[in-house]
Amino acid sequence: MVNAFAKADKSIVALFGHAGSYEWSMVLDEVLHFNVYAIYKPIKNKKFNQLITDIRKKFGSTMVPMRHATRVMSEKADNERCLFALVADQAPKRARSQYFTNFFNKPSAVFRGGERIAAEHGLPVFFLAIKKIKRGYYETTFHKITDDASKEPEWLVTDKFFSLLEDQIKMQPEYYLWSHKRWKTSLQDVKRDVELSPSIQR
Score class of each variant (00 low, 15 high):
Ser150Tyr: 12
Ser97Ile: 02
Asn102Leu: 12
Val13Gln: 00
Arg135Val: 13
Phe100Lys: 02
Gly136Cys: 02
Cys82Gly: 09
Arg81Val: 12
Trp24Ala: 12
Leu196Gln: 02
Tyr37Gln: 12
Gly60Leu: 02
Thr158Cys: 09
Arg202Tyr: 10
Pro92Asp: 05
Gly60Gln: 06
Met171Ala: 15
Glu115Pro: 11
Ala109Gln: 10
Ser163His: 14
Ala6Arg: 01
Gly136Asn: 04
Leu123Ile: 04
Leu123Asn: 05
Leu177Gln: 13
Ala14Arg: 03
Pro198Cys: 01
Ile52Glu: 08
Ile133Lys: 06
Thr101Trp: 06
Met171Trp: 13
Gly17Thr: 01
Arg202Thr: 13
Lys134Ser: 06
Arg202Ser: 12
Ala91Phe: 14
Asn35Ile: 15
Lys191Ile: 06
Ala119Asn: 05
Thr53Tyr: 08
Arg116Asn: 14
Pro65Met: 12
Ala119Gly: 04
Ser21Tyr: 09
Ala38Glu: 07
Asn105Lys: 15
Lys191Ala: 10
Ser97Cys: 00
Lys76Pro: 13
Phe16Asn: 03
Pro198Gly: 02
Arg202His: 15
Leu128Gly: 02
Glu154Phe: 11
Ala69Gln: 03
Glu152Ala: 05
Pro92Ser: 02
Glu30Ile: 00
Arg94Gly: 04
Ser61Phe: 02
Lys184Gln: 15
Ser25Pro: 00
Phe142Gln: 01
Lys47Tyr: 12
Ala14Glu: 01
Leu86Gly: 06
Cys82Asp: 08
Lys7Tyr: 15
Leu32Cys: 09
His68Leu: 13
Glu120Val: 06
Ser179Asp: 15
Gly20Ser: 03
Asp29Cys: 09
Tyr99Phe: 12
His68Phe: 09
Ser74Gly: 10
Lys58Leu: 12
Arg202Phe: 07
Asp148Gly: 02
Leu28Val: 00
Phe104Trp: 10
Tyr175Ile: 08
Arg71Ile: 14
Tyr22Gly: 02
Ile145Trp: 01
His68Glu: 13
Val125Ser: 04
Leu123Met: 07
Pro107Tyr: 03
Lys151Asn: 14
Leu128Glu: 08
Lys184Thr: 10
Leu51Asn: 08
Asp54Ala: 15
Leu15Ile: 05
His180Val: 10
Leu123Val: 08
Lys160Asn: 08
Phe111Trp: 06
Asp148Lys: 00
Thr140Pro: 00
Asn45Glu: 11
Gly114Val: 05
Thr158Gln: 05
Leu51Gln: 08
Trp155His: 04
Ser21Cys: 11
Val190Gly: 00
Phe162Pro: 11
Lys132Ser: 01
Leu187Val: 07
Gly114Ser: 02
Phe34Ala: 12
Asn49Trp: 01
Ile145Met: 00
Glu23Asn: 04
Leu164His: 04
Asp54Met: 12
Leu15Phe: 06
Lys57Thr: 13
Leu156Ala: 08
Val110Ile: 14
Arg81Gln: 11
Arg81Thr: 10
Met1Asp: 14
Asp147Gly: 05
Arg192Gly: 07
Ala69Asp: 01
Thr70Ile: 13
Thr141Glu: 06
Val125Arg: 00
Asp189Val: 09
Ala95Ser: 10
Gln201Asn: 14
Ser61Cys: 12
Thr185Met: 09
Val190His: 01
Asp89Gly: 05
Phe5Ile: 02
Ser186Thr: 15
Phe127Leu: 03
Lys170Phe: 11
Ala85Gly: 11
